[in-house]
C-alpha cells in the first residue's frame, strides 16, 4: 500500500531519458562506473547505433556468447583495432547508404591511450565519421589493475607497488586529440550524467571524428568501497583533478566551472591506491592540478581565480621531488 502523502499526483522526476538500452544481469563488479558510462551514452545515442569494442572491461561485462546485455549490435575486436574497426564499419554502412547509423568505438583507457592510440590517431587523421569514446578507469582493470598511460601520478597498481608508485603524470589525451585538429572532443564524468548526455548529443550531430573521454570509478582498482563510487568521481571534478570541458574546432569551453577551492587530498584520501602518499607528495599532485587548470584557463581565455595557489608552490615542490619532473641532479 502506498503511504498517504504520496497517493495522487506525485511522480518521480527524471533529468535524463528513461529509455534503457542495457539489460540488468551484466557481469560488472559491484558499484562499477563503466556500466553507468555505457548506460548514459546509450540513452543519448539511441537504438540506431553500432559498437566496436576491443579487449576491455566491457568485453567481459557484456556477457559470454550467445548472450549480450546490450540492445544494440556490438562487435568484439582485437585490442589495437577499436578505431580502425569502427572506421571499416562506418565505411561499409556509408557505401550501402546507411551513413546515418552512429558508429561508436568504445574502449577502455588502456585500449585508447596505450595500445589503441595509433589506430585512433589514424582514424582522426583520415576524418572518419566515428564517435570514439574512452571510458577511463585509470588502469588495466580487466586484467588485474596494471598501470596504463592514463594512471594518475602517485597511484598504486599491481605493476607500480609503493615505493615505486607511478611517477609520471597522466597522458593528456584530449590535448593529443586537439593537436589532430579534431572537430569535437570533450571530457565527461559519470557523476554528471546530464552534462555527459548533452556532450554525446552534440557529438552525434557532428560529421567527422569525435573523441570523448569519461572518468569512470572502479571500486576494486581504486580500492574504495562500492557505495562511494559516485562520490569519488564527483570529488575528482570539484577538486579540479578531472575538469569538465569541451573543445569545438580548437575553442576550449568549460562545461562545469569550479568556484570553491577544494584541496585534491579530499579526492585522494577516499581511495586506497593513494594511501601511501606523504604530504609532500600530495603537494606535487596539487601542483600538477594547478598547472593543468592554469593551462586550461589560458586556453579557454578566462581568468584563473586559483592563480594564487600556484605562487611559491613550484620551487618548493620541485626542490623536494626533482625526479618527478625529470630534472637530473648533478
Amino acid at each position: 500500500m502506498r503511504p498517504s502523502h504520496l497517493v495522487g499526483g506525485k511522480t518521480m522526476k527524471t533529468t535524463i531519458p528513461k529509455e534503457e538500452l542495457v539489460y540488468s544481469g551484466h557481469l560488472a563488479c559491484q558499484g562499477c562506473g563503466a556500466t553507468l558510462a555505457m548506460r548514459y551514452t546509450l540513452k543519448a545515442l539511441g537504438q540506431n547505433t553500432v559498437y566496436s569494442v576491443p579487449a576491455c572491461c566491457w568485453s567481459v561485462i557484456d556477457g559470454p556468447f550467445p548472450y549480450t546485455s546490450l540492445q544494440i549490435p556490438l562487435f568484439h575486436t582485437a585490442f589495437e583495432t577499436a578505431a580502425s574497426m569502427a572506421s571499416g564499419i562506418q565505411a561499409g554502412f556509408a557505401i550501402r547508404g546507411k551513413g546515418d547509423i552512429n558508429v561508436v568505438a568504445w574502449a577502455g583507457d588502456g585500449g585508447t591511450v596505450d595500445i589503441g592510440i595509433q589506430a585512433l590517431s589514424g582514424m582522426v587523421e583520415r576524418g572518419d565519421n566515428v564517435l570514439y569514446i574512452c571510458y577511463d578507469n585509470e588502469a588495466y582493470m580487466n586484467t588485474g589493475i596494471q598501470r596504463s598511460g592514463s594512471t594518475p601520478v602517485g597511484a598504486w597498481t599491481t605493476t607500480t607497488p609503493p615505493p615505486h608508485f607511478k611517477k609520471s603524470p597522466k597522458k593528456d589525451m584530449v590535448a593529443i586529440m586537439v593537436a589532430h585538429h579534431i572537430p569535437y572532443t570533450a571530457t565527461g564524468n559519470i557523476a554528471y550524467p546530464e552534462d555527459w548526455i548533452k556532450k554525446v548529443n552534440k557529438a552525434k550531430e557532428i560529421v567527422g571524428p569525435k573523441y570523448l573521454q569519461i572518468l569512470a570509478s572502479c571500486p576494486p582498482g581504486w580500492k574504495h568501497s562500492s557505495e562511494i563510487s559516485i562520490e569519488v568521481v564527483r570529488l575528482a571534478t570539484s577538486t579540479r583533478k578531472w575538469p569538465l570541458y569541451e573543445v569545438e574546432n580548437g575553442n576550449y569551453k568549460f562545461t562545469r566551472m569550479t568556484r570553491k577551492f577544494v584541496p585534491v587530498s579530499e579526492f585522494l584520501k577516499l581511495q586506497g591506491r593513494f594511501r601511501h602518499l606523504t604530504e609532500e607528495e600530495i603537494d606535487v599532485i596539487q601542483l600538477l592540478v594547478e598547472e593543468h587548470w592554469a593551462d586550461l584557463c589560458a586556453k579557454a581565455g578566462i581568468e584563473n581565480q586559483f592563480a594564487d595557489k600556484l605562487e611559491g608552490y613550484t620551487e618548493k615542490v620541485k626542490k623536494h621531488h626533482p625526479q618527478w619532473f625529470h630534472i637530473e641532479e648533478d
Binding site: R2, P3, L6, K10, M12, K13, T14, G33
Partner: peptide, 25 residues
C-alpha cells in the same frame, strides 16, 4: 517510502539498472 522525495537519484546512479521509478517511489 515515507521519506522518499521523488528525486530519482537512486535510479540515475544504479549501476545494475534494477530500480523501477514508474510508481511514486
Amino acid at each position: 517510502p515515507e521519506k522518499c522525495n521523488g528525486c530519482s537519484l537512486c535510479w540515475k546512479f544504479c549501476p545494475d539498472f534494477c530500480i523501477n521509478i514508474d510508481g511514486d517511489y
